[in-house]
C-alpha cells in the first residue's frame, strides 16, 4: 500500500471521462503516467470524480498539482496555472452527494485539518465541449502535448 507519510509530490487528474473535455485531467494523467520514470518522487493519480477522497490523496504531501477542466472565461483550450488563493469558487454546492465536491472547499478542509500540502498548484484547462462523449474536443486534443509540458515543468 502507498505510504503517504513521506512527503512525495502528487499530481491529481480530476474529471469525468464520459463528458468529453470535462475529463481532460484524467486524460492527462494517462499521458503523464507514461513518464513516471522521469519523476520517481511523484505519484500520478487518476482521481476521476473522487470527491471527498481527494482529502486523503493530497493530505501531507510536499506538493500537490491538481489538473481539472475549468470555466475561466478564456478561449477554449487555454491552460492557466494558479494557486488556491488566486481564485474563488463560484460553484453552487447542494451537498446532495459525496461525488459533488468543490475542490477548493476540499483544499480548505485539508488546511483546516492541518494536513495541507506545502504547495498547491492548479492547472485549469478551459473546455470546448462538455457533453456526453468519450473523446476530447479537437481543440484540447491538439494541445495535449503543451499541457503535458506545462505540468512536467512544474515537477522539475
Amino acid at each position: 500500500m502507498t505510504q503517504h507519510t513521506h512527503k512525495k509530490d502528487v499530481v491529481l487528474g480530476l474529471g469525468n471521462v464520459l463528458m468529453s473535455d470535462e475529463g481532460v485531467g484524467v486524460h492527462l494523467i494517462a499521458r503523464l503516467s507514461a513518464l513516471k520514470k522521469n519523476f520517481p518522487h511523484v505519484d500520478f493519480i487518476d482521481a476521476g470524480t473522487a470527491g471527498m477522497s481527494v482529502l486523503h490523496l493530497i493530505a501531507n504531501r510536499r506538493k500537490a498539482v491538481i489538473i481539472d477542466c475549468a470555466e475561466m472565461q478564456t478561449a477554449p483550450g487555454t491552460i492557466r496555472r494558479f494557486g488556491p488563493q488566486q481564485v474563488k469558487s463560484v460553484k453552487t454546492l447542494t451537498h446532495y452527494s459525496c461525488h459533488e465536491a468543490d475542490i477548493l472547499q476540499i483544499v480548505g478542509i485539508c488546511r483546516q485539518l492541518g494536513q495541507s500540502p506545502d504547495e498547491i498548484i492548479f492547472f485549469g484547462i478551459e473546455p470546448q465541449t462538455v457533453a456526453p462523449g468519450r473523446a476530447l474536443s479537437q481543440t484540447l486534443a491538439d494541445r495535449l502535448d503543451d499541457y503535458v509540458d506545462a505540468v512536467c515543468k512544474e515537477l522539475t
Partner: peptide, 30 residues
C-alpha cells in the same frame, strides 16, 4: 449541516475518518 462545519468542532475525529477512508481506499486499490 455538513462535514465542513464539523471540521471546526471535531477536527481530530474528521482527521481519523480521513485516515481510515484512506486505508480502505488503498486496500481496494491493492
Amino acid at each position: 449541516p455538513s462535514v465542513v462545519p464539523l471540521v471546526a468542532i471535531a477536527a481530530d475525529v474528521v482527521k481519523t475518518v480521513v485516515r481510515v477512508h484512506r486505508v480502505a481506499n488503498e486496500w481496494s486499490d491493492l
